[in-house]
Design a protein around this nucleic acid. Structure first.
Length: 423
RNA sequence: AGAGGAGUGGCAGAGUGGUCGAAUGCGGCGGUCUUGAAAACCGUUGUACCGCAAGGUACCGGGGGUUCGAAUCCCUCCUCCUCUGCCA
């Protein structure tokens, strides 16, 4: 979440940045926040004074007992008792004030970077780069037809096992899936990422730390009795590796990569445009996460974008890179680049990666710091998909379809063991 | 899952009601000595909040309680270890 000192010191810019997201009443909200924080400070000072007094009294009582001068003990006790009553009242108010502050802070999204374009929806996103792609061939089929014809993904059986959005990958389809995962992980390792295998169930605190709660409550599957959530992305468990950690600056950058399945309810986001692999409740993804210092996080962001771009290019599918506008920007992010691959069978761009810099937004919730000599400061956290599988798969299938086969990108051959999928 | 045991500073480990934020050892940092290093010796070494500062407050797994006073007593939750059970 946003740092309250920053809101105080850089008020106008914070307001301006949050307004960019289309939030209304921000000025008042932030003024209320500062007022509450002032109240908090005075309450804290008040209660500290009382504690100080009663601590002194207790010491006196202790000394009196030891020395046997028990005469004034009773009156000291009474005095202390009075202070206690008083402190209870103030402690209650202080607690209220603190939870008010917390509530406001939790509900505030990150401030968009200056480079983030104004805008309300994905229509206002800025295309930064588009790879050369061949013109649309009207005869190309969408992947939902091809996967049936080539018998590589079975949605119907997935429906009976679980429900809509839980596909069953079969035969060469399953192998291709595994090949992509292994390729992505190997690629990340070559780029200096340490592979981790995190839990795919997370508790409330972890979800809160990365900002998935309270913002995305309705989007995550919850195990009610256990108070656990299925991860919507590996970002949550992998970033939370560093919860409450203080990292020596010479250990930077921290670079982790993880493959996990991801689970999303996608409530309300179904429609005719989301067929086949375009949107699922369960999908596979390799995620890269970095922890960086303030000064180096921008370079890290660029490095992660390069990583994603190289990966897509190596698969030889058309893609474009997009800078998200303020209205489309994720709650916790300050700047996000999306990568979309082209699916010619449906003449549609499909998002397959999102690379973001969260600055201190997550580290402030986690209390994740970097220590350089004596000084400590909040870390910057970043992450990106590298890559989300289903839409990559869709794009590969649609781009590489032939009359009787689907060609597998060269870089995957050593992982699949075959060069094409035949009928 | 049942029974028993345990959770203290970076680590190890004392402390079972009163100046305990906490002995001691190791590690870390600074220094003396040395051509340099090691050893030895001296000093220093947790986090957060309030305060311009002096200083104050909170924190001994988390939360709650008893008490004038809690690391220490009580309740509860979590985690770990041992044994039994079950399973991959």
């Amino acid at each position: 979440m946003l740092e309250i000192t920053r809101i105080r010191n850089d008020f106008d810019n914070v307001v301006k940045a949050l307004k960019k997201r289309g939030l209304s009443g921000i000025e008042k909200k932030l003024n209320d926040l500062i007022a509450s924080d002032n109240l908090r400070k005075s309450q804290k000072t008040e209660i500290d004074k009382i504690f100080n007094e009663s601590n002194n009294l207790s010491k006196k009582i202790g000394i009196a007992y030891k020395s046997g001068e028990t005469g004034e003990i009773e009156s000291l006790k009474n005095k202390s008792q009075e202070l206690k009553e008083k402190s209870k009242k103030i402690a209650g108010s202080l607690k209220n004030t603190e939870s008010e502050i917390n509530e406001i802070l939790l509900a505030l999204p990150n401030t968009p970077d200056n480079r983030v374009p104004e805008g309300k929806s994905d229509k206002d996103n800025k295309v930064i780069h588009t790879s050369d792609s061949s013109e649309v061939n009207k005869d190309l089929k969408p992947h939902w037809d091809l996967i049936k014809e080539f018998n590589i993904i079975d949605f119907e059986t997935g429906n009976t096992i679980t429900g809509a959005g839980f596909p069953l990958y079969t035969g060469d389809g399953a192998i291709l899936q595994r090949a992509l995962i292994n390729y992505f992980l190997d690629f990340a390792r070559e780029e200096g990422y340490t592979e981790v295998q995190p839990p795919i169930l997370i508790n409330e605190i972890s979800a809160l730390n990365t900002g998935n709660l309270p913002d995305k409550e309705g989007q995550m599957y919850k195990i009610e009795n256990e108070n656990l959530y299925l991860i919507p992305t590996a970002e949550v468990p992998v970033t939370n590796i560093y919860n409450k950690k203080i990292i020596e600056s010479n250990l930077l950058p921290i670079k982790n990569a993880a493959y996990t399945p991801c689970f999303r309810k996608e409530a309300g986001s179904w429609g005719s445009h989301v067929r086949g692999l375009n949107r699922l409740h369960q999908f596979d993804k390799v995620e890269i996460v970095q922890i960086q210092s303030k000064n180096d996080s921008e370079d890290a962001l660029n490095g992660m974008c390069d990583h994603v771009q190289k990966l897509i290019e190596s698969l030889e599918i058309p893609f474009r890179k997009i800078l998200l506008c303020a209205g489309d920007l994720g709650f916790t992010s300050s700047i996000t680049y999306d990568f979309e691959v082209y699916a010619p069978g449906q003449d549609r761009w499909l998002e397959c990666s999102s690379v973001s810099n969260f600055l201190t937004y997550q580290s402030n919730r986690m209390n994740l710091k970097i220590k350089d000599g004596k000084s400590k400061e909040l870390a910057h956290t970043l992450n990106g998909s590298a890559l989300a599988l289903p839409r990559i798969l869709a794009s590969i299938i649609e781009n590489n379809q032939g009359e009787n086969s689907i060609t597998i990108p060269k870089v995957l051959h050593k992982y699949t063991g075959f060069k094409m999928i035949s009928r």
